[in-house]
């Protein structure tokens, strides 16, 4: 499995990803799947330039991202896949991307969102989408940085 980290993070590329995860996993490529960023030329450019040198960043919308992830999953190169929301990951999964584990790494708080764990807050829709992912056989885990112990989503999901 060369999709070494599939992560939900509403800030996509940032310190935890660049300074911690990338180093810890030795990943050589970052694939961002996000419709809004893929549409916006400026954001696309910023995201591509934000990773350290030698780590190419690709920004895809969901449709092309799914194709790309399926392709990359069969290569030996370790890849980090980032998406802003559970919905995107669910769409990738339904499009046939082999995702064994999805890491919930950052979902900010706001109106209508309930705090699940530390910096992870969640809306009812997202809760449903994560449950659906589990039903499809993808393990959902909360792990903010690489040195944390992963917490199974199921253990935090009270079921209401």
């Amino acid at each position: 499995m060369s999709l070494c980290l599939v992560r939900i993070d509403d800030r996509l590329i940032h310190g935890q990803v660049v300074a911690v995860w990338l180093r810890a996993l030795g990943a050589q490529r970052i694939v961002i799947v996000d419709d809004a960023s893929a549409r916006d030329e400026f954001l696309r450019e910023v995201l591509t330039l934000a990773a350290p040198q030698g780590v190419p960043v690709e920004v895809h919308d969901v449709a092309s991202g799914a194709v790309r992830c399926i392709e990359l999953a069969t290569t030996p190169e370790p890849v980090i896949v980032l998406a802003r929301s559970p919905r995107t990951i669910l769409a990738l999964r339904q499009a046939g991307v082999p995702i064994e584990v999805v890491d919930v790494g950052g979902m900010g708080g706001g109106p209508g969102r309930k705090r699940l764990h530390k910096t992870i807050s969640i809306s009812p829709d997202e809760l449903r989408e994560l449950r659906e992912l589990e039903q499809l056989g993808t393990r959902v885990e909360i792990q903010i940085v690489a040195d944390d112990r992963p917490i199974p989503f199921r253990s935090l999901d009270s079921g209401n």
Partner: peptide, 14 residues
Amino acid sequence: KSGLMGPMAGIGDT
């Protein structure tokens, strides 16, 4: 804000 805060944090933290 939401598009830039992550990448800038990545560079800034580095």
